[in-house]
Design a protein around this nucleic acid. Sequence first.
DNA 1: CGCATAATTGATGGTTATCAAGACCAGTGG
DNA 2: CCACTGGTCTTGATAACCATCAATTATGCG
Lengths: 244, 244
Amino acid sequence: MGQTDSCLITKLSHYVDLSDHSRELLSELEKEERAVARHEEVYSVAEKSRFMYVVKSGWLYSYIDLADGRRQIVKIHHPGDIVGLPDLAFEGPTSNLRACEPAVLCPFPKQGLNAILTSAPQLSALLFTLSVRDNVVLVDNMTALGRMSARERIAWFLLDLISRLRITNRNVTDALRLPLTQTEIGDMLGLTNVYVSKSFSSLERDGVLERTVDGVRLLREQDLADMVDFKNRYADMDTSWFPC
Amino acid sequence: MGQTDSCLITKLSHYVDLSDHSRELLSELEKEERAVARHEEVYSVAEKSRFMYVVKSGWLYSYIDLADGRRQIVKIHHPGDIVGLPDLAFEGPTSNLRACEPAVLCPFPKQGLNAILTSAPQLSALLFTLSVRDNVVLVDNMTALGRMSARERIAWFLLDLISRLRITNRNVTDALRLPLTQTEIGDMLGLTNVYVSKSFSSLERDGVLERTVDGVRLLREQDLADMVDFKNRYADMDTSWFPC
DNA sequence: CGCATAATTGATGGTTATCAAGACCAGTGG
DNA sequence: CCACTGGTCTTGATAACCATCAATTATGCG
């Protein structure tokens, strides 16, 4: 494989130097490709899919549907993310996956991880770490949902997104493309589309952000961060305990 | 070591048959003990603790403090749980740990996992699976916080607790000891102590549960489960993909 | 151009927060 | 034995935040 431009390898290399063997194992996960259309449902809780996916391009999100139509979006996926890791613990998927925009995915079976766990301890430790890091992010998200106002939730959400994007793309500055409807943002933050609109306007009036044609520009990022006591969970991780 | 009565080994054995080697590695984690008093802070975000803990007895919880005093409890820990796994990804703890009642903990350093990852692929896969399962539970929790009413959140919370307790203790029936104040339950569910009280009374009036001297009895568990579309994440896990 | 999707804005209402007072209980010291 | 205390729970009155509903205005796409 050599010098591919795999987002997954780029993302993981941010944290450790990967051995050639590890890079080969990862390339193995990205062998197959599948293109999906905007708003296509990739899989749902109902189907018994046993695949996981590496995102090659496009944004997607995982969500939960409640019986009466209420919906909770639980994670936004970007290029280089591994989607479906949590479903490893169960027979079928525990959430639904939907594309925000046209995207390309690389499906692979659960056993794909098997080879990694048995032959690449360092990469195993990294995947383990990414999984527990996700855990911490979900906890931050819980705190936002449980204890923050609408304005604060939006602030937290934007800071979380931009921090993630900065890992793979260093020239992200203060602007953020946002291929999500306000209804989707509401479903992520436990709000209605109407109140998302009103809260955005309110933040804009305060001059902490500004809406652009395709997203948002954070005008006073530090103020936003102070507002929600934001912790960047993506920039640094502790890899010191890893086996080599 | 042989036939210890370790809650950790009991809990893990619920999912796979552990090899002698794995049992030894796990016993290693439980070598040291530390007793903590009711409401004692075991560690906080401020300190740079690099330890994780196995719970030997007692309930504890992890929580996040916001600048202005708001608090979010993110997980209740029971005997046999490993506490602090998510902090593996970071230099210091990402949450605070507090005891609900007198408890005994077994501290061990991050490197304790190192030995497991390099020499016990099956146990590694199990720990990995537990970590991603936690992830799914957090997602359920997010859905409760984001999209459920106060009554539904309480229903979900009680069902989640009783499902977990049933793994290690088969003679849990419909009653549940609850060593938590209503303020703590509120901090878990994004509610105030006052509204927790009112919602409990409301559920009791409806006859779906009954408060006992030290906890709660679920009178119509199925109705509670239907109310929140409850999925038991603890009873079964998919271990079919594990390396042996 | 016409149609569907998305965003905005205003009016109204409901769920939950806040505030405050009182009841209950366990432990403690007089 | 009995006030006293601190913690917890309960209950009621009021208020805030956000949901709901509805109408209107963009925005994009065949």
